[in-house]
Nucleic acid binder design. Structure first.
Length: 474
DNA sequence: TTTTGAGTTGTTCGA
DNA sequence: GTCGAACAACTCAAA
């Protein structure tokens, strides 16, 4: 005896509350909740290692909140769903939209395929405050500068949807015949590096709300200024939860606005606006992840230096602020926003390595790896993106450390071999007198690397290179 | 169509 | 130590 039902296809909306597509599916009473790991269509944009680890934990949490009824598959979604349709009496198929170009193409085909077979197929907005196609200038072209995008485009448009409650009285069904177990997706790979990351991140929808509560309690009231200090608990660390949809931007927007409308809350909402801006860029420029948005940068004289890239990836550049950030990334799957700018500027401007090297490393190692944010942000720091940093804005990792990690708590945490070095030389050990190094147990080139690049010279070199691009001399 | 004001996150130098 | 200017024009967005 077949039961009438709707499918809710979970993708980057791994939550029950404020889930518009799930709410629609729930109107049918019986819902078959599914997740499909699709590496076939993703190809080079398949999830990186840290994302897979996160997904593994989050699927477990989601499955638990569904009473163990989540059905899991691997492969081409069109084939997987067609096979489900053959075996169940499915009346409708719902999902929340994703915005990576390859997913847009894939989903359009799936929608067509089932629509001509008289299936109710509908996608909803579960991941953005405003749809990219709704935010345009008066001349109907997309914004290229953040401030007008946000102030005029977003804030003067229809306000974000009020969050929905989790659907009640739903009977969740499971595909007992063909569902895989989560561990059969092999999301964890062979190495066990993720074991170190687990304590940092409570999982799932509940984990997201605990994190939000914590942020409201200790971070939000200091957010605007405090967000610059990587040793302080003033940033939300909600990015991975947002990426996988364990919390929606609407929930964050609504919550933060409701606890107090002041400059702190507004600033946090503005950061959500940056996420929207990244998605807008990716939507209107599908080649954003690989191609310079400003074509004149195609001629930029990037350097080729494999060993420098490896030193950067491993946090062995000999520049403490950079190494601390890269080690935070490797150890926790996360990096504080201020430090992302510092390590990005260092890679692109001091080492003059192509921004796509950074983009790919972050893609593999960040638990919040997000195609829109990652591509737009790397293009921003490299100077070739929309509303990009001016070319002469080159972060000095020594100055940045002194300014934003004045007591060295962040650097000492991630570079224990420098922990005894006094503040004055912590960010530039190569300037320390011999006896200071000796007293701190530091031997440059042995216990901690000599800097792989001269900050002053490389800065001057970069300025010249960027100047020539700006003027179109190459 | 033309004009005008403005543009995430910095550093260095010299007074 | 602190402060303002220079860095470099260019493009965007809207009046």
């Amino acid at each position: 005896m077949k039961e009438s039902m709707a499918i809710h296809w979970f993708r980057q909306d791994l939550r029950l509350a404020d889930n518009p597509a799930l709410t629609k599916a729930a109107e049918y009473g019986n819902v078959l909740p599914i997740y499909i790991l699709d590496d076939e269509n993703a190809q080079e944009y398949a999830m990186g290692g840290a994302s897979r680890w996160w997904l593994n934990q989050s699927l477990s949490a989601l499955n638990a909140s569904l009473g163990g009824k989540l059905s899991i598959y691997k492969g081409n979604p069109l084939e997987v769903i067609a096979d489900i349709m053959d075996r169940f009496d499915v009346k409708a198929l719902y999902w929340n939209r994703c915005y990576e170009p390859w997913r847009i193409d894939r989903d359009a085909k799936i929608k067509d395929y089932f629509k001509i077979r008289d299936m109710e197929v509908q996608s909803c907005n579960g991941s953005l405050l405003w749809e990219p196609w709704d935010i345009k200038k008066n001349d109907h072209t997309p914004y290229k500068v953040f401030t007008p995008f946000y102030n005029k485009g977003c804030l003067q448009a229809e306000p974000p949807r009020k969050p929905l409650l989790a659907p009640q009285n739903v009977a969740y069904l499971r595909d007992e015949l063909k569902s895989m177990r989560i561990d059969q997706l092999n999301l964890l790979g062979r190495r066990d590096w993720y074991k170190k990351m687990s304590p940092h991140w409570p999982m799932g929808e509940k984990g997201a709300h605990d994190r939000l509560e914590q942020f409201l309690f200790e971070g939000l009231s200091h957010y605007k200024e405090g967000r610059n200090f990587p040793a302080k608990p003033y940033v939300s660390r909600l990015s991975p939860y947002l990426h996988f949809g364990e919390v929606s931007p609407n929930q964050l927007w609504q919550t933060v606005q409701s606890v107090g409308q002041d400059t702190q809350s507004d600033h946090f909402c503005k950061e959500l606006g940056w996420r929207e801006f990244s998605y807008s860029q990716l939507y209107y420029h599908p080649e954003l992840p690989r191609k310079n948005l400003q074509a004149k940068f195609d001629a930029f004289p990037w350097s080729q230096n494999e060993s420098a890239l490896v030193a950067w990836q491993r946090g062995q550049t000999g520049v403490p602020m950079v190494d601390a950030g890269m080690r935070e990334l490797w150890q926790t799957g996360y990096m504080h926003n201020r430090v992302r700018m510092i390590v990005g500027s260092f890679l692109v401007k001091n080492l003059r390595l192509h921004w796509t090297h950074g983009e790919r490393w972050f893609w593999d190692t960040l638990v919040d790896a997000d195609l829109a944010n990652n591509s737009a942000s790397w293009q921003w720091i490299a100077g070739c993106g929309a509303d990009a940093a001016p070319y002469f804005r080159i972060f000095n990792p020594v100055t940045q450390g002194q300014k934003f990690d004045p007591k060295g708590a962040y650097v000492r945490n991630f570079i224990p071999e420098l922990s005894k070095l006094e503040d004055k030389y912590l960010f530039s050990p190569w300037e320390a007198p011999e006896h200071v190094l000796e007293n701190s147990g530091v031997i440059l080139g042995v216990t901690y690397p000599n800097p792989i690049v001269d900050l002053k010279k490389s800065r001057a070199h970069a300025l010249k290179a960027f100047q020539s691009v700006k003027q179109g001399l190459i």
